[in-house]
Simulated assay, not measured.
Amino acid sequence: MTFGITDEVRGRLFGVAYRLLGSAHDAEDAAGEGVLRWQQLSDENRARVREPLAWLTRVVSRICLDQLKSARAKREQYQGVWLPEPVLESGRAYEDSMAVDPADRVTMDDSVSFAFMVALERLSPAERVSFILHDVFGVPFADVAEAVGVSAAACRQSAVSARKNLRRQRRFDVATDQRDTVVAAFLDACRGGDLAALIRVLHPEAVAVADGGGAVRAALKPIVGNEAVARYLIRSLQLQEKKAVDTPTYAIRSVNGRSGIVVEVDGHLVGTVDISIADGTVTGVYLQVNPDKLRP
Rank of each mutant, 00 (worst) to 15 (best):
M1Y: 06
G11Y: 03
R12V: 08
R12E: 11
F14C: 04
V16F: 06
A24H: 03
D26G: 12
E28G: 03
D29R: 13
A31V: 01
Q40L: 14
E44N: 05
N45R: 15
N45K: 14
V49D: 06
V49K: 04
L53I: 02
A54L: 12
R58Y: 00
C64Q: 01
C64F: 03
S70N: 07
A71M: 11
K74T: 12
P84R: 10
S90F: 01
G91I: 13
G91H: 06
A99S: 14
R105K: 13
V106G: 07
M108D: 11
D110L: 14
V112L: 06
E121S: 14
S130T: 12
F131H: 15
H134K: 08
V136K: 12
V136W: 05
G138V: 10
P140A: 05
F141P: 04
A142T: 12
V144I: 10
A147S: 14
G149L: 09
V150I: 15
S151R: 09
A152E: 15
A154N: 03
C155Q: 11
R156D: 11
Q157I: 10
S161M: 11
R170D: 10
D173T: 08
T176G: 07
D177A: 15
Q178Y: 04
G193R: 03
D194H: 10
D194K: 07
I199R: 02
P204W: 00
E205I: 00
V207A: 01
A210C: 13
V216R: 15
V216I: 13
P222W: 01
V224K: 11
N226W: 00
A228R: 11
R235I: 00
L237W: 09
K243H: 05
D246M: 08
S254N: 13
G257V: 05
G257R: 06
I261H: 03
V262E: 14
L269F: 08
D274H: 09
S276L: 10
V285A: 05
V285W: 11
L294H: 08
P296L: 13
